[in-house]
Design a protein around this nucleic acid. Sequence first.
DNA 1: CACAGGTCTCTTTTT
DNA 2: GAGACCTGTG
Length: 758
Amino acid sequence: MSIYDTLNKEQKEAVLHTDGPLLILAGAGSGKTRVLTHRIAYLIDEIGVNPWNILAITFTNKAAGEMRDRVNKLVGFGAEQIWVSTFHSTCVRILRRHIDKLGYENNFTIYDTDDQKTVMKEICKRLNIDTKEIKERTLLNAISNAKNELIGPVEYELKSMGDFSRKKYVLVYKEYQAVLRKNNALDFDDLIMKCVELFKSSSEILNNYQERFRYIMVDEYQDTNTAQFELVRLLSDKYRNLCVVGDDDQSIYKFRGANIRNILDYEKFYPEAKVIRLEQNYRSTQSILDAANAVIKNNENRKDKTLWSSRESGSKIHFRQFDTAYDEAEYIADDICAKVRKGGNRYGDCAVLYRTNAQARLLEERMVAEGIPYDVVGGVNFYARKEIKDVLAYMKTVDNGRDDVAVKRILNIPRRGIGSTTVQKVTDYAEMLDISFYEGLKDADEIMTLNARTAGMIAPFVTLIQTFRSKLPEYGITNLIRDILEKTKYEEYLKDQYEEEAEDRINNIEELINKAVAYEESNDAPNLSEFLEEIALVADIDNVENDGNQVLLLTLHSAKGLEFPVVYLSGMEDGLFPGYMAITSGDPTDIEEERRLAYVGITRAMDDLTLCYAKTRMQRGETQYNPISRFVREVPAELTDYTIPGVIKITEEKETPKAADPRPKAILRPKATPKAEKPYIAQGISGLNQLTGLSKGAAVSILGELSYGEGDTISHVKYGEGTVIKIEKDPRDYKVTVDFVKAGQKIMYASFAKLKRL
DNA sequence: CACAGGTCTCTTTTT
DNA sequence: GAGACCTGTG
């Protein structure tokens, strides 16, 4: 019996079809990753394809990692040679080798959304564009859209000829691109676009990669944009072994340029394509699938398919209605508690999904209050946190002095007495000589407009950077970070600026150091540019561990590709989900996209699904009264355990009856006792989030008495148990050195660490 | 130049 | 409700 006998008929067919274009329409939970991994194994083991010739592209590093692990288990040999990576990392890898052909330096930096905004702000200032009239975001979105459609500044100008309203956009796009080039930087969209440009400009390079990647597989194909499609098309053009897997019903990234036509029209691009549908779902109960099917069939633009399961119908879908969003959060927390206490589920089985990140806060507070371990995915990307960006900006400056954005960011952090006037003068000077801002700083004492005192404040900064640079080769990345922190007294700066929050932020930096250590350990030739690039391409979801025993809080978007035994969809309200924007835009495809999001949400659930609705909720500082989400109403009443007003046609009963609240309050509220001592909550897998709410007020008074001494055994929120090695008094606080059983030695401030004697 | 205190705007969703 | 932005003061 071979590994392929475990596949169903369609899956097997997909695995065995190795040559020529192949479209696998894989419904949610239909085992598409299984198919992809088995297909790779089959290509290598049975067809004799060299692993080196296989390219598998995913959207997130997490998906790539999982795929690689699973292929490793299937293929005896050579799996590490398969190129499994995301669109963005694939392109970076290629561009690092060849981008000099396009006039960039190979150690280019990658700009995230934050950096883009900084650049745009400056451009608007220079071009006298009122950012109240046209927001930076709007301009950046326009540029992003253009890039996703492979429209460069020149084509953009041609296309906008005669359109007066576009004039500013044309100017801005050109300028923006010029600044990026000057800074030797690429934004996310550039990564794809430049790669395509490279292939189009050099048939030799293209041919090289075509020969290399004879078998190409693309996961989540419904989320590809035009540029990504073109990239894949070019790469596969010679051998035409392009296998794409996707589900048009799960296309949820239109806002990011995803072009659903890529999957809907695949057979038009590739008339010879074989199409295989995977409709058997191995994940969810039949009730959950019925609900998902019922909702999604309201969409016009889709390839018809119907998921079915061999599983039993299972319990009904729960619909719960609440007066406020607080009640909703409380119910969810209580319900999770109850499920865990009953012993049927672990915390890690449960996930709460929501439409907007802002909804996380309330849920988070409730989790904290009830002592439920949880992890929030997303919100502010770990690498987008201020403290992390500061440190990274130092590193970028050391690595590539051409990145003006990075240099300007840290020039006055911590305070060096260099303000905006000085920055402006140096900028002008640098512009005049057409050199980078950093080069300008080096010349500070030659800049006429600067007085000697100011120039004298700049000099130590330049020396600092130069010293880092000269030391880098001998001491490596980890020591560079430590050195930066030490020389700039960065931690003290954080303590000054952020008081209680500083501890979290310092922990975040510690986390960054851990990443650096891991990177240096796993690489034979570690290099700063490469490390920075790896970091630039990390998504929040990449850091989530599924096996953790904690409730996961995440957006519907982040939840794609995941599954959980117990799922709560919170905020099922028209105006929130579907969002206000989609409802009012007048474009019916916007609602369809939201509906696909609902479909994604529902199909994450394996056994138990709860839809939650709150009559009132605070949205951007205002109390909103939203009606029940239309998507809830699209779920057939017989599948739910509660009669949703308006779903069953009870003859014109207009008013929602009082009895509408289905919640048996008495049972579901094991009172939260705020004063009782709750066990501290293990925070996230790697402490990527902060404890909001908890950190306030709970701090030990500064310089008060400590409840522990040297030699005592204590426990820490994140690091667990440890022994106090040393306590030092510092002007502001006690500095405690602890040797943790699991995490090793750490130095922390008593007022933040909240250590508890055991 | 730094900082405090006020006003304004805003979010879907993310590589 | 928070963060970004502006303004006035020392």
